[in-house]
Amino acid sequence: MAPLLEVKDLRVTFDTMNGLVKAVDGVSFTIDKGEIVGLVGESGCGKSVSQMAITQLVATPPGKIVSGEVIFEGRDLLKYHPESNMMRDVRGGQIGMIFQEPMTSFNPVFTIGEQIMESLRLHLKLSRSAARKRAIEVLEEVGIPDASVRINNYPHQFSGGMRQRAMIAMALSCSPKLVIADEPTTALDVTTQAQVLDIMMKMVEHYHNALIIVTHNLGIIARHAQRINVMYAGRIVESGPSEEVFLNPGHPYTIALMKSVPRLDEKRGRQLIPISGIPPNLINMPPICSFKPRCPMVDACQSLSDPELRPVGKNHSVRCHLNISGQNSGTIFE
């Protein structure tokens, strides 16, 4: 069966004063119907941009989708003009987006209800009253109390957590086949994070949406995602089923990411190991392994070339010269 979405060799650049930034440099991945895929990576690695490019929401200029294919249900979305009817029908109707900033992602001058109803009326062609009914329904589903009253509230009358719930409600209201959640809980406090995440997962399960969850929180992914893609410097450096990647990570960056997260199930007193160095400047990247300057295993690596993404197990591939997965690599360099 063909996947729901297949991204092939996607490249996005940003023309900045300092030069051309290759924000997304040949990213390929797939997601099946109803699947939950996690996309991890540090800030600035291109994970958000790669997702915005799927629905052509990258601001152009300065951004530019240079090449690649985004095959959604058999059609290459990048072949359509960003403002074409086809593209607008996909946005919101077929692919729902949830953004990071609940405080600023709603328009302050329209009520929450008006903003949710706008989607419903556009994509499902509902009447005003039907759209209103449906909006109240989804708001109730995401746990907004007194939804029929709160629907008339303006965004500033909602708390951060409530806004993000409303955002989830809005993104899912038209039952899109795919939901892209770009760091949906990053801006919330920890207790709210858990609640909002729970609601999002329940909703996705209920509506059988496929979900791409972009985050730098590995915990979220470990719990919910079936597959993981790890991004570094505009590329996917490791991709595989969650369990496989967590137990046998094959890329030193993935290992380093996991070492930098506290875990409840281990001995107390273990120090968190930060990833040393800074993310590379994506302008004029030399043709070597982009993680080399920060790689803790650089001494073991003899190769000077830029590694390719190569399979290391079933559905598991890694962009590294070393062969470290499959040997319970999670415990390496402890």
Binding site: E83, R88, V90, G92, T104, P108, E118
Partner: peptide
């Protein structure tokens, strides 16, 4: 450049609606 304009676009609204309804009023 505001986030809510991006949100409006992500809902599939026409450029015209995004600009003259969502952006202009603000």
């Amino acid at each position: 450049q505001q986030d809510y304009v991006r949100t409006a676009k992500s809902k599939g609204l026409k450029q015209r609606v995004v600009l003259y309804k969502h952006a202009l009023r603000n």
